[in-house]
Computed example of a mutant assay.
Amino acid sequence: MSPIDRIVYQGTIPDSFFKIPEKIYEKSPVKPTEEPEAIRSFFAMEAIQHDIILYTDHEHFRLAGIFPKAEPAAYFGFWESVADSELHEQAFRLLENDAREKGRVNLTGPINFSTFQANRLRVGDSPSWGMFDKEPVNPVYYPDLLSAIGFQEKLTYETRLISRKNLPALFANKNEFVKAISQIPFDFITLNLENWKLYEHDIFQLMHIIFKENPFYKAISYKQFQIIYSHRFAEKLCPHSSVLIRDQASGQLVAICMCQPNYHALYPSVKEPDFARDFEKLNHKTLMAKTFGVHPDFRRQGLLNYMGAYGMLTLIDGIYEDVLLCLMRSDNYSAHFSNNIPYESAKYALYEKILS
């Protein structure tokens, strides 16, 4: 067994760190994508607020211990491992010792600094869709590796696929909202590249207000937001279903829904998808409802349902063949939107270990 190097992050990440996933996912039909330079940039920015320690044998295992300077928590992220329980236990023992020495009482992950970045594991059987764009995917043995060293599920999440044959039932279930869209005192603003540029900073502020109470949410800077949600990201959005909602009385943005086609079948030949250029290249067109939420002051007014109805207009028009409701927290109200409709489901989990 190779020894594990413990590397206190001081501005550099070894190149081997980015080669390990290539080996682990070499024969896998689904694999996550990484941009090493973007990760290096995020490490440099996050090091201001976190102590970071890397653990790796440079060939089969990598892990980052993330210790916020302003809170008594510990996280692990950027974790990839072969199915070697002894190697895995050895590396996590080092991380747990560091966490205890820093006075941390629990360890949570996988989460790559914040929920804006990759986090969670996919658990259970692989779904029929294989993988959607940016979906958490991992070898099936990952949950077992964590369970074997004392981790338990902390939070669970779900993605639901509603197929074409069940869409009529979805339309009927939400038809009253579809009919009422033009009558409510809110403006629906198409979320395309032009409007993204116009409202970019307002979107940044709105998303913080909407999601700041979510478990393990961490605020990010506007600079980090612009890296994650760049203009290239805006070009991926479906302009028929992505929308901002503005209160007519105050002019305030109060809700957002970001949807896009599942571009995964186009990778790697298409590196940066563009809806206008690439949508018609898709043989099977699946709408992905990825991020949606309502300002706390405007909740309980049905806006989540209205956004869902707005997106369904694209399904009614036959633009898409099915829809994925992506990565909903199991106990979140948004999961109720499709409760009465047949669907296929995939599960995910965030894990925690209490440190004695």
Rank of each mutant, 00 (worst) to 15 (best):
H88M: 05
S114L: 06
N138A: 07
T156C: 10
E86Y: 01
G150W: 15
S163M: 11
R160Y: 10
V105N: 08
L63Y: 01
L63N: 01
F116V: 00
D98R: 10
S126N: 12
L95P: 06
K174T: 05
A99G: 11
F67P: 00
L87C: 03
Q90K: 02
D84W: 03
F78T: 03
K165F: 00
E176A: 11
L191F: 06
E46W: 12
H60L: 02
R104W: 15
L155W: 09
A148K: 15
G130N: 08
P68S: 09
T115I: 11
A169S: 14
E71I: 13
N192A: 05
W79N: 02
F177S: 12
G65P: 04
F61S: 00
H50K: 09
K174G: 07
E101M: 14
F132N: 03
P72E: 09
L145Y: 00
P110A: 08
P68M: 10
L167A: 06
N173W: 04
L170P: 04
H58N: 07
K102E: 12
R100M: 15
D57A: 03
V105E: 12
I162P: 08
N166R: 07
T159L: 10
I189N: 05
R104I: 15
F186K: 00
E89N: 05
Y75S: 05
F78R: 01
K174Q: 11
A99D: 13
A169H: 10
R122T: 13
Y142P: 06
L170R: 09
N106A: 11
E71M: 13
N138H: 07
T190L: 05
W79Q: 02
A74S: 14
D98E: 15
M45N: 01
E89Y: 04
N192K: 00
G65K: 01
P136C: 12
V137N: 05
L54K: 04
N166D: 15
I162N: 09
H50T: 04
L107N: 13
F177E: 11
M45I: 03
R93G: 10
P110C: 07
A148E: 15
V105T: 13
R120L: 04
Q117W: 11
V140M: 09
A118S: 11
R100C: 14
E135W: 03
A73T: 14
G103V: 15
S126I: 15
I66C: 01
F67I: 13
F151M: 07
G150S: 15
E158N: 08
V123S: 01
K174V: 04
Y142E: 01
G65N: 02
D98G: 08
F92W: 10
T156K: 12
G77P: 08
L94E: 08
V123E: 07
S182Q: 12
A73Q: 14
L63E: 04
Y141T: 13
E135Q: 14
F92H: 09
L167W: 14
T115D: 02
Y142C: 01
